[in-house]
């Protein structure tokens, strides 16, 4: 009996958690999809998917070796590097956006140099990608550190003693054993970058990604113009982390 009461409590909690999704079925009138709404909306989907993918490529290429290094370094040193990664996560997105626009703007150290070179670091695809990298890489690295940290170092050393050079040890031992943890880390970073609004709205209002376009549609046309993009946003953002998380939770995964 008690078990059923507990289970009933869990069902009630789950329903409360999922309740916001019922907003998709709210009566907001017929959804708007005329040219005025559809053109910028489709463009925002394209911007988000292409440039977030580019940002994720940078996150993985830069974040994986960093995570590997931090996971295998001495505990004291690891703490320092981890605290820096956590700092990038803890910054409020809007504050991060303002800091990025100042650091990479004409008055910043690197920004000044970029400005001389004619590289625009605000309202450009580059600004969009750089901002997404900054908001998401900390999530990926921390997840990847945990994934690599769960592999006994002796397995990698044993693989090396069996004649495998470092890159083959990575591909044949480290990566296969960490892959589910890396998938979860990647998916969290993906959803974080794709859904980023606060920082991106400061650094790259144009080209607008999906979150900014959602805001624009809401402000300009109201809820009927928001619903189609909202649906697309949920379909592109949610499945990857959801499946990765479920796979990682499997017994003996």
């Amino acid at each position: 009996m008690r078990r059923w009461i507990r289970r009933g409590g869990m069902v009630a909690f789950a329903l409360t958690l999922l309740y916001p999704l019922t907003g998709l079925f709210s009566r907001v009138g017929p959804w708007r999809w005329d040219a005025e709404v559809a053109n910028p909306t489709v463009a925002s989907i394209r911007v988000s998917l292409i440039w977030t993918s580019a940002a994720m490529l940078i996150v993985v290429l830069a974040g994986t070796p960093v995570a590997m290094y931090v996971a295998r370094t001495a505990p004291k040193e690891r703490l320092w590097w981890q605290s820096i990664c956590i700092l990038s996560i803890l910054l409020p997105p809007l504050a991060l956006g303002i800091l990025l626009s100042m650091a990479f703007g004409p008055s910043g150290w690197i920004g000044r140099w970029l400005d001389h070179a004619g590289i625009r670091m605000s309202n450009s695809a580059l600004a969009f990608v750089v901002t997404q990298v900054y908001v998401s890489i900390g999530y990926y690295i921390l997840g990847a550190i945990a994934a690599f940290g769960s592999i006994p170092p002796m397995l990698e050393k044993q693989a090396a003693l069996l004649g495998q050079p470092p890159w083959r040890v990575f591909w044949r031992v480290s990566f296969p054993l960490a892959r589910l943890g890396l998938a979860v880390a990647f998916s969290v970073a993906w959803v974080r970058a794709l859904g980023e609004f606060g920082a991106v709205v400061v650094t790259a209002y144009y080209p607008s990604g999906m979150p900014v376009q959602l805001w624009v549609n809401l402000q300009s046309f109201g809820l009927p113009a928001v619903m189609p993009l909202l649906l697309v946003f949920l379909v592109t953002a949610l499945p990857l982390p959801w499946v990765a998380h479920l796979l990682a939770q499997r017994p003996h995964a």
Partner: peptide, 27 residues
């Protein structure tokens, strides 16, 4: 390590858990 012609066996077998026995031995 990969250039050392050494076989090293400890108390822990340290097998690669994601591989079969055959692939461990042929590693």
């Amino acid at each position: 390590l990969h250039l050392r012609p050494i076989g090293y066996l400890t108390q822990e077998p340290n097998l690669f858990p994601h591989l079969t026995v055959e692939h461990n031995i042929a590693f």
